[in-house]
Design a protein around this nucleic acid. Structure first.
Lengths: 192, 192
DNA sequence: TAATTTACTTACTTGTAGGTAAGTTTAGTA
DNA sequence: TACTAAACTTACCTACAAGTAAGTAAATTA
């Protein structure tokens, strides 16, 4: 009984990075196994099929979201740090070799996804929008933000903007990320 | 001498759809050749490597952009129809089985792209931003639009938004596209 | 009319992908 | 001490990917 938890965790970490770097069809079991010094079959032991692995990665992401937003969702609080937290998370991901986000990486593989994976991805998106909508709503009430229209579509648009910006930044250079954050702040009437 | 122009054109059309539906690693020569009733090697004849094909698709896209925006870029004119034209183009693409845009599809494959393909993609993005920035600038001067900040970053943000929205719409449903367009209009102070 | 070029096809190579079945080692349990 | 289960490895399979070399029929040119 070698370090199962260890290997499983390492597989998830490596796969996570590869998925957001190259997409679902851009990496193979070998790409994960070789650097870890295990065999392909070791991955199949933990994740019978590639789709099981992808599903686990989405659910992992969902976990991170829930843990990171639980407090605000329960008790509210200042909205501005929540927004800045989203920017900081995005920056950190980029710096860790995850240039695009989960939704951005998997949307192109949508047809190939299993029903379970698809549902998990839907939920990830839905919960993220719900969180940001609450941040915007709260921020408007507390006069931290100023914007036109309803909070939910505005939240969806901001997330779409960040998702798109991450991808464009890959082609156009990382300074576009900060410019996009600045634009989002400007659109929310935040003085800088 | 069979219909070369015909075959070449059919390959491009089919490949274009497949690329925006499944991504660069999500389709093979067979997926193109079989429905056309030709052999894989026929594609290699017109496009020696897959990267040549991808590069041709990007350049095709660049052509469409230039043709569609040449008049406005040269003479200016009303800005609102230009913006609505972008929305309509996006709708049309989605309806034609091209759920995501070129930049959104290829950003994940960025590392694999040849230098030429990469440069073509950069140019596609740069020219698109330049066009929309002019649309916004002109629209603000003519009091069609109202927004804070500079035109260029605002244009980049809007394009990022649409790119992200197309991808999210695939997972979340097409009504998100229209909601995003509405949000962009609202952000630009357009009454509906 | 002969030579050449275009637009392919046939037949093949090499590499890799995801996946599986059967064996092996190690640790914990009865 | 024997048994069982976990966490692998070895060895394999089938399928398909991109790409190439050589051949061929039809059109074009000299």
């Amino acid at each position: 009984m070698n370090q199962s938890a260890n290997t499983r965790e390492s597989i998830i970490q490596a796969a996570h990075r590869l998925l957001l770097q190259r997409g679902m069809n851009g990496f193979s079991y070998r790409d994960i196994a070789q650097p870890l010094g295990v065999r392909n079959a070791a991955i199949h032991y933990h994740f019978p099929s590639k789709m099981d692995l992808v599903k686990a990665l989405i659910e992992d992401n969902l976990d991170v979201l829930h843990k990171g937003t639980a407090e605000f969702m329960a008790y509210g609080g200042p909205a501005r740090p929540q927004l800045e937290g989203l920017f900081e998370f995005t920056r950190h991901q980029s710096a860790c070799g995850r240039p695009v986000c989960m939704v951005g990486a998997l949307s192109i593989d949508f047809e190939e996804l299993s029903d379970e994976a698809r549902r998990a991805l839907e939920r990830l998106m839905r919960d993220t929008v719900a969180w940001l909508a609450k941040v915007l709503e709260t921020g408007r009430e507390q006069e931290e933000f100023d914007f036109r229209g309803k909070a939910r579509p505005k939240a969806a648009a901001i997330l779409a903007t960040i998702q798109g910006a991450r991808q464009i930044a890959r082609i156009h250079g990382m300074e576009l990320l900060e410019a996009t954050f600045a634009q989002i702040r400007t659109d929310l009437g935040i003085e800088t």
